Amino acid sequence: MSNQAHVIKTRIPDPPPAAEQLLSAVRDAVEALKAKDVVEIDVRGKSSVTDFMVVASGTSTRHVKSIADEVVKHAKLLGFMPLGVEGEREAEWVLVDLADVVVHVMLPRVREFYALERLWTVGDQPPEIHPADDTPAG
């Protein structure tokens, strides 16, 4: 028995938006939906998959999904369709792949368990917390 894969039609404008443009759109999206403890991690030189990771928390599964949906909406405003969106059904951890920027929106308990910030910043300065946030992650 086979399961049908969820197919997302990707669209990358030519030329694609710069990583900083995508990062700005993500900032606007997470800020608009009042995501908690937003952290941006520069992984250039550490990962060949992406340039930046953004990790944010939602207060409930509905909030997590709404934040991820808002990120997708803001990317579309740049003419960019995500390469993939994973985890929407359970909405405890939703990943939005925007190529140069990968966004992780998680419930706090899931975020604490996986500790992505620590994984990607071992030996670095602490991750940068977005100025709109009131409290540091962790």
Results as ranks from 00 to 15, higher is better:
94 V>P: 01
40 E>Y: 10
125 Q>Y: 12
54 V>Y: 04
112 E>S: 13
52 F>I: 05
98 L>S: 02
112 E>M: 09
65 K>W: 04
113 F>P: 09
89 R>V: 13
93 W>F: 12
55 V>I: 15
105 V>A: 01
61 T>A: 08
50 T>S: 14
73 K>C: 09
104 H>P: 06
48 S>V: 15
97 D>M: 05
34 K>V: 05
101 V>P: 00
123 G>W: 05
64 V>W: 01
50 T>L: 05
66 S>K: 01
96 V>G: 00
78 L>N: 05
28 D>H: 09
125 Q>N: 14
26 V>K: 01
90 E>T: 14
65 K>V: 07
111 R>I: 04
97 D>S: 11
82 P>V: 06
105 V>M: 03
41 I>G: 00
75 A>N: 08
61 T>G: 08
127 P>I: 05
96 V>I: 10
103 V>A: 02
36 K>E: 14
73 K>R: 15
25 A>H: 03
78 L>A: 04
27 R>E: 12
106 M>F: 11
83 L>S: 14
54 V>W: 03
45 G>Q: 08
30 V>R: 00
119 L>Q: 10
43 V>C: 06
78 L>P: 02
48 S>A: 11
75 A>R: 03
113 F>T: 14
100 D>R: 04
101 V>N: 00
42 D>C: 01
113 F>Y: 15
92 E>R: 15
55 V>L: 10
31 E>A: 08
120 W>K: 03
52 F>T: 04
76 K>C: 09
80 F>P: 00
29 A>E: 01
51 D>P: 14
71 V>K: 00
97 D>W: 05
41 I>Y: 00
117 E>S: 07
